[in-house]
Design a binder for these strands. Structure first.
Lengths: 158, 158
DNA sequence: CTACGACCTCAAGTATGGTTGAGGTCAATA
DNA sequence: TATTGACCTCAACCATACTTGAGGTCGTAG
């Protein structure tokens, strides 16, 4: 049994150690439907090595700013079983677009702050930092914007 | 009174409209010590126009990824009263560094994903996406890393 | 076969950043 | 002066992403 366990079948503790993700988080991901496990007769979780890649991919997506709910949606579209290289390539291409958007908006913020060192952020109407999207009227009730790009593109999270 | 109110002294509703931040959020910021208000005899909040800049600066910091607690710490270091152009210049320089870090790590992630399209994220030991900082051993218990850069540098939230 | 570490579930707690609602007061206008 | 929208406080709630703890079981080494 030992040879089996150490080479192909992983306990939750082993997955935690190898992935760097705490056991509690693995439990949590399972309740959220991000990962699955088979169970022993005694109800303990058992994983194949492919779980490690899945977890790595989840963490990468989090770094890119995707909330778990969105990550789940992407993973749910994939065929069952281990994630294949091809699937990962496609995922990473889609996520790159999101990541690019995030980077772009941060670069824009940086440029605006740069420019704002001159303006001192004095001008309500002219400062691009105060009027990020140009079309946002100063009046107008519903004119709030999301800062939290977690929605669909981020999660403050990261 | 009306001329006063419309030009120099702002009610919370007016601040909300002009800043684009909901009244509930202004209350919330006040409980967190990020903004202050004077009160009328009837206990209603009144602001001077300088509150608008302060709020703008808070929102910019949030875009840059700073959690409110950190933003508060920065603002607390400033002298009382309206934020001056000079203070804002100094703040923005400090925040730019943080912003640059965030951008850098996202660019790095993007590059790694790029490279990983080739590797298919197959290699546990070689893939930089799976070993983000090079020195993280695969074993080793405490080797978890923060994904959430909200701490001190971000907050996903964002 | 017993001990002990690893595992199990489920509920509750933490932190961030707000929003919502109840119950009641203010203030400007008609 | 009466009305009515704007404001007030305080408690509770929402979502995200986990962690912690209680109470109890599994499984493997000795």
């Amino acid at each position: 049994m030992t040879y089996l366990k150490s080479s192909q079948i992983l306990t939750v503790g082993e997955v935690a150690k190898r992935s760097g993700v705490p056991v509690s988080t693995l439990h949590f991901y399972e309740t959220k439907g991000l990962i699955e496990s088979s169970r022993t007769a005694g109800n303990q979780r058992r994983y194949t090595r492919s779980i490690l890649r899945r977890i790595a991919i989840i963490r990468i997506a989090q770094r890119a700013g995707l909330p778990l709910s969105v990550i789940k949606d992407y993973l749910d579209k994939l065929p069952d079983g281990p994630i294949k290289a091809k699937d990962w390539r496609e995922l990473s291409q889609e996520w790159r677009v999101i990541l690019d958007d995030r980077i772009t908006s941060l670069l824009q913020l940086r440029d605006q702050m740069e420019g704002c060192i001159g303006c001192g952020c004095l001008s309500l109407k002219e400062c691009p930092l105060r009027n990020p999207d140009d079309f946002l009227a100063e009046e107008g009730p519903g004119a709030r914007r999301l800062i939290n790009d977690r929605n669909e593109a981020r999660p403050g999270g990261s």
